[in-house]
Structure formats: C-alpha cells, structure tokens
Design a binder for these strands. Structure first.
Lengths: 337, 337
DNA sequence: ACTTAGCACTTGAACGTGTCGAGTGCTAAG
DNA sequence: CTTAGCACTCGACACGTTCAAGTGCTAAGT
C-alpha cells in the first residue's frame, strides 16, 4: 500500500473530475492516466482514500468525487508554478498599453483575471487618499488585554485586542489614548505608522512599551481599514460554468452583492508560503459560499489589498493559483511605477 | 366581436402568465377572472388575438402565451398608476434616514429598487464635477447638415448631426468652431449651456442662427456625456426569477458587465408621456438582451440620468413602472436638497 | 350576428417497465 | 501486495401507456 501512489490516484481523480464534471471510476482513470497498475489496485486505493474521507461515491457503485478535504490535500500538494502561457503574456501586454488612471488599471486587471481563469474575479480597492483617522478608543479588558478601536472618516470601524506585557491603569490608558489621538487624528491612513511612531516619543518612559504594542495594533487596523471598495468581473462565468446547475448560483450572487461580506472574506485570508491563499468550500464560513472556493493573494505596497478569483469548489486550482499570482505580481509592478 | 373584451382577454392572459409562468388556457382564464362570457367565446377571442400576433400557442393545443407585441399592447394600455404600498413607503423612509453622501444615496436607491421589483436595478451616475470639455469638432456634410463632435476629458466621444437652415461655408465653420471652442474649452459639462450662449454673442450677425443650432446640439451632447458610470444591484434576482431557466442568464450577465452597452441602452430610451420608458424584448437591439425588458425613467435636474429595472420579458410591467417612477421621483427630491 | 354547448382530436407531462453499461466489493489465485 | 474474475447495484435511456388540459369546429340558441 504505497502512500505515494494513493496520493497520485487522488490527484488523477481531482484532475479528471475538474475537467469532466462527472464522477470518475477506476476504468476511466486507467485509460486517461498511465499509473502502472491495474483497475483492481486502483479500486483498493480508492477504498482507502474513501476511508480517509478524501473522496466519496455519490451513490453505491458509481465513480468517486473528491470531498472538500480531498481538494484541500490536493491543493496542499501543489508546489510548482505553471509558467505563464504566451496567450497570457499577450493579454497582459495589451493591458499595459491601454493603461489610463489607476482606477482603470484595476478595472482592467479584474476583467483580465476573470477572462484568464473563466471565473469570477474580485479585487479590493485601496483608498488611502479619501480616508483619515476620525477617532481612537482604548478599553482595558484586564490582564494586559486591551481593545483597540479605530474609526475612519469613511465610517469603517475596525477593532482588535492587543496583548500588553502587563496591566495598565485606567489613568495611563487615558494618557496613551490622548497621545495617540493627538498624533494621529486626521492623519491619512497610510501615514498612520509614521505618525504613531512620532506620537510614542512624547510618552513617559514607563508607557513606551505599552504604547508600542498599541501602535502596532493600530498599524494593522489601518491596513484593514484602507480597503473599503471592491471591483468585480466575470459573474457571467459563474452562470456559464454552472449551466448544469449542480450548485444554485443564486446564493452566490447574493453573497457577491454584499460587498461587506466580500471585503471581510478577503481581508481574513492569510497568504501561505507559496504566495497565495486558498479557501475551499465550507472553509468560507459565509452563507451562500459553502460550495465555492476562493483563491487570492495580496498586491501593491505591503500587499495590503487582495485580488483573487471565486468559483465552484470543483475548479482548476492549479491554473487559478498561477493566474492569480501572476496578475498580482504584474499589478504590483505597474502600481509602483 | 367586441374589441374591448378582446383586449380585456389579453390583459387577463398577460397577468396570469406573469404570475403562473405557464401557458394560460380558456379554462383557467374563466376561473380566475370574471369575464362575463363562456370558455368558448374566450376561445374565439383568443383565436383572433393569435391572428393579430399578440399571443401564440407554444404547441398545438396548450394554452396561449403573450408575444412581444402582446406585451407591448398591454403596456401601452396601462394608464393608471398604482399608488405606493405602505411597505414601500417604509422602505423609502428607512432609506432617507441612512442618507450619507450622494454616492451612498444612489447605491442605496438602486438596491431598494431591486428589492421592490425583485429585478435587476440599474442607475446611471451623473458626474458633472470630474469631466470638462476637451475638444469640439464641426464637419460640414452638405445641405446644411453638420456633424457636431464633443470630446470630454473622461474620454467619451459623443456626436450628432445638426440640421442648419442653409449650408455654411468651410471658413465660416472654422469661425464657429473657434468661437465655441474658445468659450467652452475646459468648461464643466453642466456649464455648457450657459457658456455656449455667451460664446454666441461674440459671433457676427450672419452666423448667429447657425451658431444657435450648433449650440443646441452641443447642449444635448453634454447631457449624454455627463453620465459615464453605472451602479447596479439585484443580479441575484435574475437567477432566482429564472430557476426554471427559460432563458439562459449567461448572455444577460455578460451584457450587464458591458457597462458601455448598458450606458448606451439607457441613454437611448425616450421617456413617454406617462413618465416612463419601456423596451420589450427585441426592441432592445443588443446581443443577449433579446428576451429581457427594460423599464426606466429619468431623474435629477433635467432628468439627465436614468434609473430603471431590467428583467425577463415576462415581468410585472405594472408594478415595475410604478416602482421605477416612485423611486425616481423620490430620488430627484432628495438630490435637490 | 354573437354566444354557447358539446365533441373529437392533439399533445406534453407523468409514470412504469425493461435494457444497458459503468462501476463496485469481494474472493481466490499469482 | 497485486491481479483477474464474478455477482451485484444503480442511474441513464428508450419505450409505451395513460391522463388531463386545451383546442377547433359544428350546430343549436338568443
């Protein structure tokens, strides 16, 4: 019972299923891939994979379909990056030439990504210029835990709990708040890190450590607060990829219209070492997205804003990851010039 | 053979079909509506209506379905406006209270409209502030016909043929162009009418009449050029109303993503005396919209921008017209304060 | 001149049946 | 640990039958 071969079988199942959209059985597997073994052996492997919960049979005795965990295992095994095809290079080239203002670049980028992946593409728009710090609030929660709240002029309220080394007295908290507020009020969000550092220097020595922790929390909040808009393209792909309507697209469209939900979803994603974040099916805990996956990454200075694609769990993860990464890199390069 | 009753039968067919989504036969018609006649008479009327091309039978001997012309006749007969329901009043009330900046008002309005009608709502966003006149071109076409081209700083190019009383020499055309360009270059689009009038006064007497005609054309162009963005809501309704997928929503979603197409479509609409514009099925000459209808009207100062809904030809025109009109009125009132 | 009742006819939808093929699990042999 | 073989399952598909809704037409009634 070779562990490696079993995973190879899983890979084959996922790839076949993604393309055929139909449960894949041992026979088909034998034809399309040259694994060096017979159908019976594959069946045994499949039985084991099913025990592990990586694949399931929709009904007794028809082919297997990957489960969410199956996709997850498959995705985690992807390491190599497919290089860009020449068609993609050409598309990107065309994009460069038509470049107008920044908003237009973003708009075109998201369309491009939708076209490359045949999926819904989404992109967070960072808006430094419009938004300034309106208010800051600090609330002691005991044991050094302190709630930091940042309110932006765009009405967004972001909060986070900072863990200080030791508890801070209420009066000191007020001092810290006054110092931070004095330094940061009406600052643009991208100025927060610099101004916060400045504000720290005016603090008494005893509060420096606590202030630094709070400033760090504020910096991270300001990054989140800076994206408050989304552009999207390719919703038609959603309908097309789904003409067999295995999943109803209605709830997905509803979720996509709730920009607040989308913003939060994207902000939550943590980009893994390979440079992308992948959320599969119910790993997205949002209503309506139980049967969809998200592949995204960050772009721009400090990778503050995210760009990615959203599609049915049965998607071509490998291609999507490559396309998202390539587009994000390209976009970062454009924006920095 | 009473003409009035036949139209009444048509009305009944349309209303029933809109709600049931199924071909409606003489029996059903007799049950649900109290027309004072028997099924046989209705059948005779239906035969006549079919001859007129207002309804068709999908297959020999099953109920009738309205044709596009049938809907058209039905819509044209609508005169009375359904008053707003209390639910609608409440929804609008809720909207008022949350009013933030103008963009947010528009955003909320379009969502409201989508919710009220259970359809896709679209709204043109007028942008006076951003856009200025970049260039004006005049081209003589002979017999007094003159092509007027207006190029805005947003890159939009609008053109129209103006009919002058008599032919103007090429040199005079250059004089007119210089005068208009001098007065209008870098004007904001909403200032065009005033500035154009001013520019006319510097013209020699002989060119006054021609100049006035050209200025009128420019004014109308500037109105068109001022809208270059669309906000949309309720695409999920499209999928929902269509879960029986009588029309594939893919091409519709594609058309909706082409904002340029949508902008042109809305701009073309001519609002009829009742205060709304209705385009049914193939009256929209755009790919993908052959089986959808648009109900829209203008809003804001001079009704420059349009707001409306888009849905399957089989839609509740009466409600849609009422909702669109009410929302547009309300929106105009808000914006003027 | 219309309207109505009655009747023969059409037709899609729903349902039951039988066949077919892809696929499985299991057992026994290599 | 792999393979061949076999009995068994179950959905997809193709048919045939029945059923109800609906039509057009004709003849009688107002």
């Amino acid at each position: 019972m070779s562990e490696a071969r079993r995973l190879e079988v899983l890979r084959a199942i996922v790839e076949d299923f993604v393309h055929s959209r139909e449960p894949v059985g041992s026979r088909m597997l034998l034809d399309r891939h040259q694994l060096g073994v017979s159908a019976a052996t594959i069946r045994n492997d499949m039985a084991l994979l099913e025990e592990e919960g990586l694949i399931v049979a929709p009904h007794t005795s028809s082919g297997r379909v990957p489960t969410e965990q199956g996709y997850r295992r498959f995705v985690d095994r992807i390491e190599d990056v497919r290089p860009l095809s020449s068609a993609e290079r050409r598309a990107i080239q065309a994009l460069i030439e038509g470049a107008g203002d920044v908003d237009e670049v973003l708009e075109r980028t998201v369309r491009l990504l939708a076209q490359l992946t045949n999926q819904v593409a989404v992109l967070q728009v960072p808006q430094f210029s419009n938004t300034v710090v309106r208010h800051i609030e600090l609330v002691g929660l005991g044991e050094g835990r302190t709630l930091v709240v940042l309110i932006g002029s765009n009405g967004k309220v972001e909060q986070r709990v900072a863990q200080l080394e030791r508890d801070v007295a209420e009066e000191d908290l007020q001092v810290l708040k006054a110092a931070l507020l004095g330094g940061l009020a009406d600052s643009r969000l991208d100025e927060v890190p610099a101004r916060a550092e400045l504000a720290l220097s005016s603090l008494p020595q005893t509060l420096r450590a606590a202030g630094a922790s709070l400033a760090a929390a504020l910096n991270s909040l300001s990054e989140h607060s800076v994206v408050d808009k989304i552009v999207m393209a390719g919703t038609a792909n959603l309908a097309r990829s789904n003409r067999d309507f295995s999943l109803s697209i209605t709830p997905v469209l509803e979720a996509l219209e709730e920009q607040v939900v989308l913003l939060r979803l994207l902000s939550e994603l943590e980009i893994d070492p390979r440079g992308v974040a992948v959320r599969i099916g119910r790993e997205n805990m949002y209503d309506g997205l139980e049967e969809t996956s998200v592949v995204a990454t960050g772009y721009g200075p400090d990778k503050i804003a995210k760009v990615g694609v959203l599609g049915p769990t049965r998607m071509d993860y490998s291609s999507s990851m490559a396309a998202v990464r390539a587009v994000a890199r390209y976009l970062s390069r454009i924006l920095s010039s």
